[in-house]
Structures are given as C-alpha cells and as structure tokens.
Nucleic acid binder design. Sequence first.
DNA 1: CTGTATCCTCAAGGATACTG
DNA 2: CAGTATCCTTGAGGATACAG
Lengths: 218, 218
Amino acid sequence: MRSYDEYCPIAMGAEVLGDRWTPLVIRELMCGSERFSDIHRGVPRMSRSLLAQRLKHLERAGIIERREPGPTYHLTEAGRDLEPVVWGLGDWANHWVLGDPVKEQYDGGHVMWRVRQRIVVEELPPRRIVVRFDFPAATTRRRVWLLLDQAGSSVCARDEGFDVDLHVTADIATFMRVWAGRTTWREAMDDEQIVVEGPGELVRSFTRWFALSPFATR
Amino acid sequence: MRSYDEYCPIAMGAEVLGDRWTPLVIRELMCGSERFSDIHRGVPRMSRSLLAQRLKHLERAGIIERREPGPTYHLTEAGRDLEPVVWGLGDWANHWVLGDPVKEQYDGGHVMWRVRQRIVVEELPPRRIVVRFDFPAATTRRRVWLLLDQAGSSVCARDEGFDVDLHVTADIATFMRVWAGRTTWREAMDDEQIVVEGPGELVRSFTRWFALSPFATR
DNA sequence: CTGTATCCTCAAGGATACTG
DNA sequence: CAGTATCCTTGAGGATACAG
C-alpha cells in the first residue's frame, strides 16, 4: 500500500493494518495458527503467494517473528500489543455490522476450521473421536470430518474411511448463527435445523467441548 | 474493496475500515471537522472525488450521517462506537511505529491544520491574534498564518496582509516532534530550533493555548 | 463551497504452475 | 510442507476539468 505521507499515528497504524488480508492474517495468528499452511487454511481465499508476501511484510514491520525450524510464525510483543485493536474492531463489527450469513459465506470447511481452533480439549472424552458434519446447503465443503484427540485435533475434507462416532447434519446458515451466538443449540435442534446422531453420552457432551466463536459470548 | 466473503466480525470490520483513506477520514470527523472542505483539508493528499465516494460509502455503512443544510457530516452512534478502535490503532502506532518525521511529511499546511483543531480556545486572549509560522525546511507550505479568535480559528496559506502579532520560526521536523510529544518546547527553544517572537505576554501565553497532538500526552 | 464526470495509469493481487 | 515465479486482469484511485 502506498504511504499516506502523514506524520500521524493513525495514518501509520493504518499503513500496517490497512493492507488487504492483513487483519485476517493477524487474526489467524491470534487464534493459534503458527504454520504457513495452517494460517492459509484460516484465510483460504487469499493466494499463497500473497500470504507469503504479507508475512514478510509483517515480519519487516516487527509485528511477527519467523522461527526456524518449522518454520513457525509468532506475534512479537508489538504484535501482541495490536491484539486488543483487532479484537476491538471485531467487537465493533459484531455489534454493528454482522448480520446473518449469506450464501457466499457458506463454506463448511472454513467454519469447521474456525470451530476446530476453539475445541475445548479438556472436555473431550479420553479417546479419539471422529465427527462427520454434513452441510447440505453449503456452497463448498458440504461434508467435513473433525478428528478430535487430546493430543491435537484436525479437520479433514476428504473421506478417508474414518470410523465416525458422531454425525452432525445441519443447515449451514443455522450452524453459523449458533457459532456466532445469534441463536442457541437448543433452538436449532428443536427446529431440527441441526441434528446430532450418535451414542447418547457423546451427544450430551457435545456442546461442552464444542465452544462457540470468541465473539459469541462477549 | 472486494468482500472477504467470510462470516467473521474481524473480516466485516476490516471491510469497513480497510478501504484506503477511510481511517483518516474518520479521524478528521473525530477531530471535529464537519464540512466537506474541512475534512479534505485534513486529508489533502486524497482526491476530492475519492473523498466524496468514501463519505457516501461510510454513510451507506451507517458510520456517518449527512445533514442538510450545509451539508455537514457527523459520526452516527455506530461511528462514535468505532472511535476507541481508531484511537487504539493510533496509540499502538504511536508506541510501536512512529519515529521522527521524514521529508515527505514536511508539510507546514498539514501540521498547522492539525494544530488548529487542538487550540485551547478558552486560553486565548480575548481578541483576535494572528500568528505567522515559518518553516524554512518544509517541502510544502513554508509559511502559514494562524488566525485565532474565540469565535473560531482558521489557517491560511496565503499572505493576505494580516497584522501579525506573533512570529514563529521553526525547523519543521523539530516542530513536529514537539507536537508529537517527542521533545519539549523548552528543549526546542533552548536549541533555537523554534523561535517565538512578539510581545512578552503573548510569548508567555503561547504554550497554554497551543495544545499538542492528542497522542503526545497519552 | 460541494461536489460530479471522465480519462487514464499502474500496481495490487488472483490464477496457475512449479520447486526444494 | 512451504513457499516461488509468472502471467495477466481489473478496478482503485490519481489528475483534471467542469457544474450547480
């Protein structure tokens, strides 16, 4: 982005945070992604070359640090200091501009990636769990597997013949509204917009380890 | 700006605040400008057509409100709610990225416009005061007049034959550093980087009604 | 003063393929 | 996995002139 050539902190800050995609890259780092591919999974519509470019730029600006081996990316002290600003922007938008999701956002893979980052590992049963999500109305990634494990969970978009423990079938818009805290599990399930099938014990524990968006509870 | 197509408050917020110049336009509104030309004087490197476009966009987004007659522009409730985010961004940059001013920023007109917005009207003598500022090292607007009045002050970049009460001659970089709170009047004057000439009473009251940047004292 | 209209340029960034 | 290289498009926005 071209400089504003103004000696003003707001202008300088906007030069750092104002590049396209940059706030989302920082969001991914704030949400725990450290590896190039993980960051990219959180911002999949951005090209890999552009992500590489942004990471370099942020590194030069002193916001992030690249560590070998790995490599992994981490917020520096300056970057961590920027977190409240980015969360503040999110809180503002959550209050004033977030509406219901629209079709262009119906991406099962993307929601599930965000979901995965929030799984409450401590509440998981002490064994591996596979959950299959079906979002018939999604425009991309209509079927996604969530592989949960206290050691580390992951999201998979290809059928690799897992033994599925839990089946979730959901209207993706409703699912996203629950995730965003705009409606409740109870209401969505009562309306059968979300159906969870599997062993009763798992179904009951589901909403304990499945945490909502960071903005849902604020 | 193209949409990110993500159902995420940070992405939505970035779509509003991420357009080029937009944070600076909001800054101007936060700092008290209401009229099109006044806003533009605060962001003079932006073209007028682009400013018009941004104002419309912000109005559609519910951040600002256009009032007739005038017209004047004002932050809405949503817009005022965004203020802490923008100030937060500024505070962050003030701490982590603001260095000393560089040549591209040596614009006497722009600094003085920012200065004017902060004049402490209550501390002014009860009559009209004209201050002439000379910035020999400035790249644009090397000479600027500040017209002070309890009814309303203004900045003028053309010699209109004023009776000048106070002459300020300054190295613009030092002047900007004082403005930003990175050095003091005392030090700058001791080094003769800033020289204030005029009636003793006015010279002494000068630093009372001349307030520094909002970021200087934070 | 408060914009609008038009033209034109340039560079950001999307798409795609490739590499160590 | 972690990028790089290249090509190519498009639309953002700068410059300028004009209008109510």
